[in-house]
């Protein structure tokens, strides 16, 4: 389990901006230390936990130490195996939405770190979901990877413009998918045992 966090990691866990964390660190609300020989701020786990509890920030993300993934796809078998593969990695906690409407509800309740979003949903398409998430400022920190069997460059570009951070084709290599997730979430790319 991770014991020390950077301000960026703390910001993601608390779902606030990195600037807020730095301000709280600098004014003493959030206790921590600087890396010897540099100005980089570091926050011990217990200090971050106390800070979150004092400020009524839900602490479950820190408690599990796992990144929250919202997997949106209507194909039950695909969702099942993808969730299993992600959970096996050990660093992710996965919840599932089977359509665009559920995804919209759950993204607000569950506050995932990252959404894995199938583009072809039974109700609204993935591009629409991207745009709705991006129109909500409180969901700014949520990263989105669109997943689809379609391959046209211009379609991918459209998804990026709608707010997707990355794109992955179906069928995907789960290691490559996790690498992309890690890069977006500022995590180490190789799985921690």
């Amino acid at each position: 389990m991770k014991t020390v966090f950077t301000t960026g990691e703390a910001a993601k866990i608390c779902k606030v901006s990195q600037q807020t964390i730095i301000r709280c660190f600098d004014n003493g609300q959030l206790k921590g230390f600087r890396v010897p020989g540099s100005k980089f701020r570091r926050i011990p786990r217990e200090s971050l936990y106390r800070f979150m509890r004092d400020n009524q920030i839900p602490t479950d993300a820190l408690e599990s130490g796992k990144r929250k993934v919202l997997l949106v796809d209507d194909d039950a078998e695909l969702v099942e195996v993808t969730a299993r593969l992600l959970e096996d990695d050990g660093r992710f906690e996965v919840k599932i939405a089977a359509n665009g409407f559920d995804a919209g509800m759950m993204v607000k309740e569950y506050r995932p770190d990252i959404m894995l979003l199938d583009v072809m949903l039974p109700d609204i398409n993935g591009k629409e979901v991207c745009m709705r998430v991006r129109s909500d400022a409180s969901l700014e920190e949520v990263r989105i990877i669109c997943i689809s069997g379609m391959v046209e460059d211009d379609k991918i570009q459209e998804l990026r413009l709608a707010g997707a951070d990355d794109f992955e084709r179906k069928p995907f290599d789960v290691e490559i998918l996790i690498d992309k997730m890690c890069r977006l979430l500022d995590m180490e790319t190789a799985a921690v045992a």
Binding site: D75, L78, T82, M120, G149, M150, K170, P171
Partner: peptide
């Protein structure tokens, strides 16, 4: 769309 989903399930 129709083929890539099952392919993803098999591959996964």
């Amino acid at each position: 769309h129709e083929f890539n989903n099952p392919l993803a399930v098999i591959s996964g």
